[in-house]
Every structure is written in structure tokens, then in C-alpha cells.
Design a protein around this nucleic acid. Structure first.
Length: 117
DNA sequence: ACGTTGACGACCA
DNA sequence: GTGGTCGCCAACG
């Protein structure tokens, strides 16, 4: 469990129902702007254990991109339950449903570990 | 230590 | 809108 992984998990848990974040956005919030693919890896390996809202993470185009058919269906179903509209072609309107994570809040919560003046 | 692996993202055709 | 290339980088074997 690296600090990066810990931050990603911390962030994911803050996405409210009915909202979504993109992989890149989560990576950026975790202070590694180009580590979107690592977010993917974390979702793969730790969603169950840490009860992560994995279905609330989609790609930068607002598209549902899970490869596995069953999981993709489940994701659409879960988002639908939360009131997130999905187009027939599998797109979510980011303008409407994207969760704008406040990185300041995150930094404050980690102040206890850092010694900034 | 090194090559591979991704539910990515930006860019271009 | 769709599909391909290329760069990215932490985790894994």
C-alpha cells in the first residue's frame, strides 16, 4: 500500500452517489496527474476489499469503458440506480454528473502527516 | 532489476 | 463519432 494508492482510495470514497469522476481526474487529485492507468489498476485489485464505488469512475469522454460485458452492465445498472443518465451508446453527460473534487480539502486532511509552515 | 500490463488520455486521420 | 498511435507510470512476476 503506497501513499499514492492510499490517496486514490481516500478520494474514491468521497465520490457521492449520483456523481462520477474520470480516471484521470482521480489521478490528478491523488497528485499524480498522468497516472490514470494506475487508478484503473487499483480499481481492479482493491474495489472489493475497500468497498470502492468503482462504478462511479469512467473515462475522460464520459464513456463506460469496462471490457467485461457483465461488469459493464452492472456499472450501468448501478449508475442508473443513482440517477445518472447513460446514453444508448454508453456515455454519461460529464457537465451534469461530474463530481468536482476539491483538492484543497484533501490536502487539509493530510496536513497531519506533512509539516508545512 | 527489467519487461509487461492496463476499465487511460491527448492527438490525429 | 470512430478507431489507431503513442506516452504515461505504479504494480507485478
Amino acid at each position: 500500500m503506497t501513499p499514492f494508492t492510499r490517496r486514490v482510495i481516500h478520494i474514491l470514497k468521497q465520490i457521492p452517489a449520483g456523481k462520477v469522476m474520470t480516471y484521470g481526474q482521480v489521478a490528478k487529485a491523488a497528485r499524480s496527474p498522468r497516472a490514470a492507468r494506475q487508478v484503473v489498476r487499483i480499481l481492479h485489485s482493491m474495489s472489493k476489499k475497500h468497498h470502492l464505488p468503482w462504478h462511479r469512475v469512467i473515462n475522460a469522454k464520459g464513456q463506460i469503458v469496462i471490457k467485461d460485458d457483465e461488469e459493464r452492465m452492472e456499472q450501468k445498472w448501478l449508475l442508473d440506480l443513482e440517477g445518472v443518465e447513460i446514453s444508448l451508446s454508453g456515455y454519461v453527460n460529464l457537465e451534469k454528473y461530474q463530481f468536482h473534487y476539491d483538492i484543497q480539502t484533501d490536502e487539509n486532511e493530510f496536513d497531519q502527516y506533512s509539516n508545512k509552515d
